[in-house]
Design a protein around this nucleic acid. Structure first.
Lengths: 233, 233
DNA sequence: CGAAAGCAAGAGCACTGCTCTCGTTCTTGG
DNA sequence: CCAAGAACGAGAGCAGTGCTCTTGCTTTCG
């Protein structure tokens, strides 16, 4: 599959990429709200209606950017995990968290696009769920690789939570005990809460030492999912 | 101050309130992106230009809604804290957290307005910082009221964080030890991370038992700031 | 009472997303 | 190989937006 049949198909791929690049550029400069199809077309030297041959609507363009952003932040997380494979799990956890945070700081508008308020009538197309889960899967993997070596003492689960935690474990975190899965999902959300507060201005006039605070909190989150600082393996 | 001088002034207040109400209604239905000045004016039976006598721009209208939303969620938090004054601190913490979450679930678009991605060129007018800090102040108060009775064992702070934590304690959390202040600020962000993930769809197809998960995580966050479950007031 | 300030209305500008039509160009099956 | 058909870019146009400016009317107040 994906063999390029002719000049037309090749051109289509290139133009599609050019549109996304220009859109990403405008997104980085002005934010999603100011992203204008007409401005993108103008900058590319084509007329606005021509753009609809490639994206059926503005929302579809945004969706494409969303998928790309999820993939980018997912790739960053995966790379950080690979790069630190030798480290103890808690260290890997913090490394992944810091990598994600740094990507967010470097691409604030793209981060806002995927972890801020859903922009349009917030449909969540099915093609976003795959890329969207990559960061989470990295965190799960780190915990999974550690859970065998470490007998963890996690807080017991309430009954209503236990059943769902077992389902989650079966669904996407096989081999991880339910207590850890529940803590993991919560820690996942909390990690992005820290990043969002920093990025969206909630820490303005409050926190100055943001990187140290993030490291400290990420380290505590690692503990909360059962990773010990002096973890063996 | 604030004595109503005449019919004109009284009318101005009423019209301003009517505009905000209609805007809030449209915000709740369609979200901030779709909020249209012209539609608000239309619904109110006036012409769009007349609206500019009351709000100099669309962003100013949004800012007014933001302030109101911060006040509303702050009031909810304060009420929850008052209502549970007799409970042990950890219980109050969870009660406040749940109250905030429930307000968010009931007013998703208003929540997105204040804790989602900053909508316009994200200026943060000075008149928003007061209302914005009310929830945080409630949490600080709970910890402060408990810190005397409980000798807490919190993780030590890194050097770069310690200085800032001491500054924060002096600035807005007098009487709370720096370890608790750092944990508090992080827990504050993490709390809203949990709410945002649930509200913005990140938990779709992942977490089903969201309320139990939130309670569990909020309880752990209470522990993380030094509040014991069996705390003796 | 009359000047001044506050107000609503309307027209208008520049911009947006999106649709439709019309020639042109490339692709492909008979 | 060439004609039918699909893909494409350009342009005009529609409905909607935020915002400005001018024009009269009404309320306020010296």
């Amino acid at each position: 599959m994906s063999t390029i049949r002719g000049a037309r198909e090749r051109a289509r791929i290139e133009v599609t990429a050019a549109i996304k690049d220009e859109a990403r550029k405008q997104l980085a400069e002005e934010g999603a709200a100011k992203l204008s199809l007409r401005a993108v077309a103008r900058e590319l030297g084509m007329v606005s209606s021509a753009l609809y041959r490639y994206f059926p609507s503005r929302d579809d363009l945004l969706t494409a950017l969303i998928v790309d952003a999820f993939d980018a932040i997912g790739a960053v997380a995966e790379q950080a995990a690979e790069r630190t494979e030798a480290l103890p799990p808690a260290g890997r956890w913090v490394a992944v968290a810091c990598a994600v945070r740094e990507w967010a700081l470097a691409h604030p508008h793209e981060y806002a696009l995927i972890y801020g308020s859903p922009v349009p009538g917030y449909i969540a197309p099915t093609d976003t769920v795959g890329p969207a889960s990559r960061v989470g899967l990295v965190l799960i993997d780190i915990v999974r690789s550690a859970v065998l070596a470490d007998d963890l003492a996690l807080p017991p689960l309430a009954d209503e939570l236990r059943a769902d935690a077992e389902r989650m474990a079966a669904d996407f975190a096989e081999g991880v005990p339910p207590e850890a899965v529940a803590a993991l999902v919560a820690a996942w959300a909390q990690l992005f809460g820290l990043i969002s507060f920093e990025l969206f201005g909630q820490f303005n006039r409050v926190v100055e030492a943001r990187e140290p605070l993030f490291r400290q909190a990420a380290g505590e989150l690692a503990r909360s999912v059962g990773l010990r600082d002096s973890g063996t393996a």
